Computed example of a mutant assay.
Amino acid sequence: MRLMPYQCSVGKLTIGYGHNLDANGISAELANSLLENDVDKTCRELQAHKWFNTLSVARKVALVDMCFNLGLPRLLKFKLMIVALKTGNYELVAKEMLDSKWDNTQQH
């Protein structure tokens, strides 16, 4: 079993117990399970920060989405945004989010 993708002996991208990703991809059920696991992990990472736990549900959802896409280390580089979250300056939070390369990758 290999938990990271690898090239099998005939050059096909493979994972797990020889699952051929090139030929078979993954099922919708597995994709949904992976997403659920990734979102749960992202939530746990964010909940370790006191400032996250004080936010409304809508703000938490937005940050979970941002963190899911960027990863926690890159999210934590938004230092001004985090200070603004801690002080409740949500206008500045929005400005920092919209003024970033991350926002340029989002569909409007």
Rank of each mutant, 00 (worst) to 15 (best):
M1S: 11
R2I: 15
L3T: 12
M4S: 02
Y6C: 00
Y6W: 03
Y6V: 03
G11P: 04
K12T: 03
L13S: 12
T14M: 04
I15C: 10
H19V: 03
N20F: 01
L21I: 13
L21P: 03
D22W: 02
D22G: 02
A23M: 08
A23P: 02
A23T: 07
G25H: 11
A28Q: 06
E29K: 08
S33A: 13
L34C: 03
L34K: 01
L35R: 08
D38C: 02
V39E: 14
V39I: 14
R44M: 06
R44I: 07
A48Q: 13
H49Y: 15
H49G: 11
H49T: 07
K50A: 15
K50N: 14
F52N: 04
N53Q: 07
L55K: 06
A58C: 00
A58N: 11
R59N: 11
R59A: 09
R59H: 11
V61K: 14
A62L: 10
M66H: 05
C67S: 15
N69C: 05
L70C: 13
L70M: 12
R74L: 02
L75K: 04
L76E: 12
L76H: 14
K77M: 10
K79H: 00
K79Q: 06
M81N: 01
I82Q: 04
A84G: 01
T87G: 06
T87S: 14
E91Y: 00
E91T: 05
E91H: 08
E91N: 01
L92Q: 15
V93D: 06
V93K: 05
E96N: 04
M97L: 12
M97H: 02
L98D: 00
K101L: 04
W102G: 09
N104H: 10
T105G: 00
Q107I: 08
Q107T: 09
H108M: 09
